[in-house]
């Protein structure tokens, strides 16, 4: 039974002039089993920083992240992460990339190849096993990165604006594929926990069970919105009245924060 609790997490950086740069205020959030939670917020609100803290890549300045009853002290393969920039080493083929986590964990080569093949097929990259990342489109690269993370079978999937760098059409297709892979049609017990950071309100509504709205810097949680959009979701969901209502509401919440973030950026 996996669980994630973010307790009073704060983050600030020391600036050269001795001042503090506050990235995150005080964040509290719990994610239940099989839950898909998105975080939306204006640029610079610390949402990516929060995700890295949950991953164990950054230490919080205060508070703690508790995963499965244990305080997070560093990165772990049980908390897999997908990055906006794909983070695929260009000298490794698709198959080598997908096998990487298994190799790190000491899975023997033969088994490694079998598992990798299964996930390559799952994300629709069969036939591209021996291609290098530069030979793939942005959408295919992100599929490869997703397969690599899933091959480790993590309990928690952290996604940092994974579809921000692909075009709008590909983005919608990838969202649908992600839901299919995650198991939008399954019972929550059979799904992984997902924490998904995005700029896009539409993406958050289409994907998640709950949407967390963050304030401009220093980021605190402004609202946790429980998404009434029924599952399973498909293309039609995007034009349903429930979807549009949710979008209006979230945009109302986010607009004032975005305006604040813009004026902050001007000041900086």
């Amino acid at each position: 039974m996996a669980s994630l609790d973010i307790n009073d997490v704060t983050k600030f950086y020391a600036l050269r002039d001795g001042q503090r740069f506050e990235a995150l205020g005080c964040v509290n959030l719990s994610i239940g089993e099989g839950e898909f939670v998105s975080i939306v917020g204006p640029s610079g609100c610390g949402k990516s920083s929060l995700l890295r803290i949950v991953a164990g890549l950054e230490e919080p300045s205060g508070g703690e992240v508790v995963f499965d009853g244990i305080a997070v002290a560093g990165p772990s393969s049980r908390r897999g992460m997908v990055f906006q920039e794909y983070a695929l080493p260009p000298w490794k083929t698709v198959a080598q990339n997908v096998e990487l986590g298994l190799k790190f964990r000491g899975v023997p080569p033969k088994e490694r190849a079998q598992i990798a093949q299964r996930y390559i097929t799952l994300v629709g990259l069969q036939g591209f096993e021996h291609r290098y990342p530069r030979e793939l489109s942005g959408g295919m690269r992100q599929r490869c990165a997703l397969a690599r993370t899933l091959a480790n079978d993590p309990d928690l999937l952290l996604m940092d604006e994974p579809f921000a760098a692909v075009d709008a059409q590909t983005r919608e297709i990838l969202q649908e594929e992600l839901l299919k892979i995650w198991g939008g049609h399954l019972t929550p017990q059979r799904r992984k926990m997902v924490l998904f950071v995005t700029h896009s309100i539409d993406e958050a509504i289409f994907l998640s069970d709950r949407v967390v709205v963050m304030s401009s810097r220093p980021g605190i949680i402004k609202e946790v919105f429980t998404n009434p959009l029924p599952r399973p979701r498909a293309d039609e969901s995007r034009s349903s009245p429930v979807f549009l209502e949710a979008r209006d509401h979230l945009w109302g919440q986010l607009k004032s924060e975005t305006l604040k973030a813009i004026s902050q950026a001007v000041e900086d």
């Binding site: 890295r52 990165p75 393969s77 983070a87 690599r148 480790n152």
Partner: peptide
């Protein structure tokens, strides 16, 4: 690239 190292860390690399 920092993200390459981050990705490897979250994949369980020592």
């Amino acid at each position: 690239e920092r993200t390459l190292v981050w990705a490897a860390q979250t994949l369980g690399g020592r």
